[in-house]
Design a protein around this nucleic acid. Structure first.
Lengths: 194, 194
DNA sequence: CGGCTTCTTGAAAAGTATCAAATATAGTGG
DNA sequence: CCACTATATTTGATACTTTTCAAGAAGCCG
């Protein structure tokens, strides 16, 4: 988020919810950062995967459009949460309705992103985590991402269909062999964003 | 495929390739059956997951639109293969360009289907296979699907991120406890479709 | 009938989950 | 400012699931 936020830009800290499934709202263009989408029922409770756990349903990174379905239904289908710090602007920008070509691009991006998310759940733990970090890195161009900027272990575990413990162990190994900068590490309750 | 095929309907047998990534073509509405999408490079070789293996990238079932990206790029992004016997009609039907509302619906469907595919790679083997069968069943309404109508083990393994052996064992158990009709079983080279 | 492909099944090996405890940090209230 | 609570992360030992590797069975085809 090196850009100067316009008056309409919405900045979200890592871990914060951007919108809830079922809530009314508009679509957004993600101009920086990365977002997870979750399938939820009307009450905001997570649904699916295992009973009571979160149901990871998709990924969005810099350049993707979030919540385009609101143009059709008026409400969000998924719950969106910031994996890393994000910047959003309303979409479409000026005009009321997007052009067909824009929608086709959004669709093509969505399908590619879906394929990425599917690929993140295949192979051994080390490879999955590496792939995820690579994708996250693409949404923060120019920044070398330290351990601090990565999503929470909980998020990485949901996305890769691994457990928190396995992701933690994998990152420890990566830090040991130098494939991940082992600067600081985050712990404890995330910083509250008043 | 209980419907009477119109003169433009394209019928595809299970296992057949519908189109290849990189090839020119138009978009299709899947009016019956189920399809797997794979990420491939230009030469038709599979790319990704493990080196040399197929890279499952998405799922489509009855009612979904395939290859909408051709309206933008002129070429297919993924390779599409029939998981079960399929029927396709060109999309959009009459007019040249689809309306914005249609595109939004296609987008919403694509995101839901992506979430489904992601969910198929989480949990224990038995649950994943069960979920997949349920999705396949939805694309063949009215038919009780026997072992014969299921996709090939190879496809089910790619989709669920399990191995062929594990899927086979899971199906055997399901047939043993009656949760899957154990009528006939397919084996050997699939029937050639002249 | 051979040749090919898909499917089935077994036993051992590998990888990950589970469970539990310890360590770190941020916020809260005295 | 210091306990104290709540949340995140790290790490270990064990149990479990799935993979791997291999062989055989079953169907289709020429």
């Amino acid at each position: 988020m090196d850009m100067k936020p316009g008056f309409e830009t919405r900045v979200i800290e890592s871990g914060q919810t951007i919108y809830f499934a079922g809530a009314p709202g508009n679509a957004w263009l993600l101009v920086g950062g990365s977002v997870r989408l979750d399938r939820c029922d009307m009450d905001g409770e997570m649904v699916g995967e295992m009973e009571g756990e979160s149901a990871f349903a998709g990924l969005a990174i810099k350049g993707d459009v979030l919540g385009a379905e609101t143009l059709l239904f008026g409400r969000y289908t998924f719950t969106a949460t910031a994996l890393t710090s994000c910047a959003l602007v309303p979409w479409p920008g000026g005009q009321q309705a997007p052009e067909a070509a824009s929608l086709l691009k959004v669709l093509a991006d969505a399908e590619r992103r879906g394929a990425d998310a599917i690929a993140l759940r295949y192979g051994e733990a080390a490879m999955r985590v590496r792939k995820l970090i690579q994708i996250i890195a693409a949404s923060h161009p120019g920044q070398t991402l330290s351990r601090l900027m990565l999503p929470a272990l909980n998020d990485m575990a949901d996305i890769t269909a691994l457990t928190i413990g396995t992701v933690s162990r994998t990152l420890s190994l990566m830090q040991a062999d130098g494939s991940l900068s082992s600067q600081e590490r985050r712990r404890g309750r995330p910083k509250a964003c008043k």
